[in-house]
Design a protein around this nucleic acid. Structure first.
Lengths: 151, 151
DNA sequence: GTCTTATCGTTAGCACAGCTAACGATTTCG
DNA sequence: CGAAATCGTTAGCTGTGCTAACGATAAGAC
């Protein structure tokens, strides 16, 4: 008869994660604004930089967003010279998104800026707590993946 | 000379948390849409329901948002009959926000709906992992608090 | 080898969230 | 009483999310 208890824990956990995600993004967004990149653009750029050239559809899917939304995000990134569009030779319908050197540089700078904020906060934590937090982040990622597969 | 290593870990951790927060919110938003409440509205409503009557300014501060933004969020909630505005007797400049019974009901229903999604994902985790994830959420909250204090 | 259907990306148009600047109303303080 | 500060709102901008509709290209039917 632990299902009731687990359900209660899941409820509390869902609340905490939801709230934490909202507030974390609000704080990080301030730093990200310094690079002129919003969270969605930064996230999409990250996929392009680390995931190599991808089609717009793949990018939309990776970011869990509809194609029209991704079109505009990419347009914004392209206007800033961070990515460029390129047609696929084999399939004329596809648009491949490539990261420019500037895009790579800006992404790294944004990462560095963001981590400075978090790093100062992390300094108040013990190595054990850092490890625990890392473990939590890993579990959260797995959880999100399983939610995604369940759709 | 572990500072370099810790800095690298903090960088990776920041990335993971950032990405996880973005994707978690994207998934949960879909469920929240079922209640007709966006994440910011749900979050604000939660503060009003659990935090008793608060002024608009307090609410904006709690949600880390500027007053004009909160004005519109509250207006939306009020239009749906989830909260009501009430002037303060002592200080005419203040606007106290109260939760209506309907607001409380809708919030609870949203929580239940959201947890169903997370609960099914949580079922794939062991009790130990649930505890670890809870610990991570707690640390994350503390981290956010310290970031907030540091400003 | 057409012709139909499916897929991909874009455009158009809507709602909402975030911001700054400016303003009216109210309170507080000199 | 009059000046300054505080609170909330309005106006106007940018960006993100959606659906619906459309052109262009590819794939499949016949």
């Amino acid at each position: 008869m632990t299902s009731r208890k687990r359900e209660r824990e899941a409820l509390a956990l869902a609340d905490q994660l939801h709230s934490a995600a909202i507030h974390l993004l609000r704080h990080l967004r301030k730093e990200d604004d310094a690079s002129g990149l919003s969270a969605p653009r930064l996230s999409a750029l990250s996929v392009v930089v680390f995931g190599g050239p991808v089609t717009l559809g793949q990018l939309a899917n990776a970011e869990q967003v509809k194609p029209p939304t991704m079109t505009r995000i990419v347009t914004g990134l392209e206007k800033d010279g961070l990515v460029r569009r390129e047609g696929d030779a084999r399939d004329g319908r596809l648009t491949k998104i490539h990261a420019t050197p500037k895009g790579q540089k800006v992404l790294m700078a944004g990462r560095a800026r963001r981590v400075e904020l978090l790093a100062s906060a992390v300094e108040g934590l013990s190595p054990t707590e850092v490890a625990e937090l890392g473990r939590g982040a890993q579990l959260l990622r797995e959880l999100i993946d399983s939610m995604r597969r369940a759709q």
